[in-house]
Amino acid sequence: MGFFEKLKNGLAKTRKGITEKIEQVLVSFGKIDDELFDELEEILIAADVGIGTTMKITDNLRKKVREGKITNASEIKNLLKEELTRLMETEDSGLKLDTVPSVILIVGVNGVGKTTSIGKLANYYKNMGKKVILAAGDTFRAAAIDQLRIWANRVGVEMISHSEGSDPAAVIFDAVQAAKARRANLLICDTAGRLHTKKNLMEELKKIYRVIEKELPGADVETLLVLDATTGQNAVAQARTFSESTNVSGIILTKLDGTAKGGIVIAVKSELDIPVRFIGIGESIDDLQPFDPREFIEALFS
């Protein structure tokens, strides 16, 4: 199965969620009026796009409708597609991981799928020919280290770990030294899930980030925030707070295969301009795909 095919399948539910309803609305409304916009708004809100972003999108649509003097309701779909694509596009060309070693730091709240995503990421970069080392930075949750070790063995990469309950920054320190000594291309660091409202735990994250910056000056470091696609508006608060402590440069959106919606990505991009880098669309090891905004929107509407 090709990438596009797989993405389309993975997004089938999402597509069903959004586009079918939009089609329904467009069929039932011949002309563009306030009621139509109300319905469109409701559809976006039901997809977790959030009321603020939704209003922004529909306001823009209204403006375009006025300016373009569009009278046919079915033309709205293309306009909406354009609007969403424009919103999701980024200027850069993806993650920057050129230095040896470079680092990916994985952060997020509890239960979003950080460890699983790391397993998939390690596989992705190993297949690209990179030498990958994992750092078991979740020293808090019971058996988190064992969980990552199983992934490391499955993928066939090395893992640096301390015992449960030890200082995560110390694990990262050792992992950085190991990555330098073994000339690894990429160090992927796991961290314990933490609610962004816990000040002390966010401080701990800052410390981890400082260790990486101090031990690898000038290295490419990407912090990826893992977001659960079923999460509602709180995802924006998560993205904002995690950015404050670790300079989040991208998002991994997980569990997109399970939910009928995925609108929170649009809200996060719109509010904070943090791009989605990968999406998790299944349970198996290669079900992590790079995020392509254009294809994402295309697949959403095709």
Binding site: D48, V109, T230, T231, G232, Q233, N234, K261
Partner: peptide, 12 residues
């Protein structure tokens, strides 16, 4: 149920 779940909570 995760208290942070969005609109999809109903379907689940």
């Amino acid at each position: 149920v995760d208290a942070m779940t969005g609109q999809d909570a109903v379907n689940v």
